[in-house]
Design a protein around this nucleic acid. Structure first.
Length: 211
DNA sequence: AAGCTACTCAACCGCCTTCTC
DNA sequence: AGAGAAGGCGGTTGAGTAGCT
């Protein structure tokens, strides 16, 4: 992936100026700019953020990149059998409400769950068999069935459940858990250079992030 | 070793909802 | 109350890669 800047679109602003809007994969530099800006100013007002940070990206693009990839508490890869079960269960209940499902899986994004469903689950489940799917999933890890009832209870109370930390609950869940490489080192050897390294650097530098 | 196929996932698109003026 | 802007969400696509022949 090279940053040749050749994938930009032209967009005309209110003031009549043409600004180039970049599309496609984010570069390390863009990631750092975005992380740095949010660390100093916080999230929100994405269009404004993109402009002020000097990123030639749309607000939507910045928001997506931040939520799905750069957030310090985002956890990628290695979806556990418990999480799989929960996804299947919640999907059976709510359908394709990915963001809603994602809220019950701390550190997981709607995009990741959506991709996971489409690539790992949907193709294995014929239409009409979804109801049976969760029971099939249970055979993956019988032990995980033991907490199903507590999941139900938590859902009923609107409490998110973290399958990786069954003993914990929403109140003691903390993003710092995900600084542990064990949570981010995907089996597929994904490159987590930027996020993990960056947040470590921020910590070392005693960044004045106010959050 | 080279070519092909299947799979994964980051990112974009477009629609809908919510917010602000 | 209405219009426009921004945010949120689900669907889809395409590039990269791993596995197979």
């Amino acid at each position: 992936m090279t940053d040749d800047g050749g994938n930009g679109d032209k967009k005309t602003t209110e003031s009549g100026q043409e600004t180039e809007v970049r599309k496609g994969p984010w570069t390390m530099e863009e990631d750092l700019i975005l992380i740095n800006y949010i660390a100093n100013h916080g999230e929100g007002v994405w269009n404004n953020l993109a402009r002020c940070a000097g990123l030639k990206r749309t607000g939507k693009s910045c928001r997506l990149r931040w939520l799905n990839y750069l957030r310090p508490d985002v956890r990628r890869g290695n979806i556990t059998p418990e999480e799989q079960m929960l996804i299947v269960e919640l999907h059976a209940r709510w359908g394709n409400r990915w963001s809603k499902i994602a809220r019950q899986l701390p550190g997981r994004t709607d995009n990741e769950i959506k991709n996971f469903w489409r690539t790992r689950i949907q193709k294995k489940v014929k239409p009409g068999e979804l109801a049976d799917c969760s029971s099939q999933m249970m055979t993956i890890d019988e032990a995980s069935t033991s907490h199903t009832s507590s999941v139900e209870e938590n859902l009923a109370q609107g409490i998110s459940y973290d399958p990786l930390h069954p003993a914990s609950n929403a109140s003691d869940h903390h993003p710092s858990n995900y600084a542990d490489p064990a949570f981010t080192a995907g089996e597929s050897g994904e490159n987590f250079w930027s996020v993990e390294d960056f947040w470590s650097i921020q910590a070392l530098n005693g960044s004045d992030r106010d959050q």
